[in-house]
């Protein structure tokens, strides 16, 4: 799925049937949060309570109350860019500690997601946070095909520049720079050599000149 599309995806009754039964190939349930879990998108789009699962590939929430065909939400884990333990705060009346997530989503309403266990203690939340971390580590970014051939957007440009700069930096440090330094050193030595030679020659010439002057003087005397 390309990035920046509307995420997460709605689960319909037909596909999930009120419990997590449909798993894709190689997918398995990694963690199930005991008790009811409230899900809130953005700044207050409360989806109500439901069951919350982490599979080794995605986060899945299945609503207690179905509304038409809507049965919940799921999101592939690599779209969760950042997750955190957020304490209860006064902002929009959040009275319970939760897992706060940021999603790589252009859709503003679905940019943030809060997963709020309604039962349990602080330990409950740190266990859930750890499970989030584990699954995030299992799901690195998918390799982008044709990378380096085309530049698509600002991020790509920045990425490319960073890579290039780093390459230039390392190359400078190793190959080119050392080569240049060696060249410079040789030139310096050669220059020094020339200088010394010139000085010697000059000295010699001066001496010769002086000698001949002396000799000349002697002759003249």
């Amino acid at each position: 799925m390309p990035l920046g599309k509307i995420l997460p995806t709605e689960i319909t009754v037909t596909s999930e049937e009120k419990s997590l039964t449909t798993l894709s190939n190689g997918e398995e349930i990694y963690f199930r949060q005991p008790g009811r879990v409230r899900l809130i998108f953005g700044t207050g789009k409360d989806e109500g309570t439901g069951q919350f699962y982490l599979t080794n590939q995605r986060a899945v929430w299945i609503a207690d109350a179905t509304e038409g065909e809507k049965a919940g939400w799921h999101i592939d884990f690599y779209h969760i860019t950042c997750h955190a333990v957020a304490k209860a705060n006064s902002f929009d009346g959040q009275t319970q500690d939760c897992i706060y997530c940021q999603l790589d989503n252009e859709e503003e309403d679905y940019y943030e997601m809060r997963v709020i266990p309604t039962e349990g203690t602080a330990t409950t939340l740190s266990t859930l946070y750890k499970a989030f971390c584990d699954v995030a580590e299992m799901n690195p970014d998918p390799e982008e095909e044709g990378e380096g051939d085309f530049i698509f957007n600002e991020e790509e440009v920045n990425g490319n520049i960073q890579r290039m700069l780093r390459q230039i930096y390392t190359e400078c440090l190793t190959g080119e720079l050392r080569h240049q330094l060696r060249k410079d050193n040789l030139t310096m030595k050669r220059l020094e050599g020339t200088k010394m030679k010139t000085k010697k020659q000059t000295l010699k010439e001066e001496t010769n000149c002086r000698e001949s002057t002396i000799r000349g003087g002697q002759v003249a005397e």
Binding site: C82, A84, A88, N89, A136, N158
Partner: peptide, 19 residues
Amino acid sequence: KFPHMISVQNCFIRGSVVR
């Protein structure tokens, strides 16, 4: 911009979103 982050203590950041 991110009022919910005020009450955050620990967090996990995906490497690919770090600028």
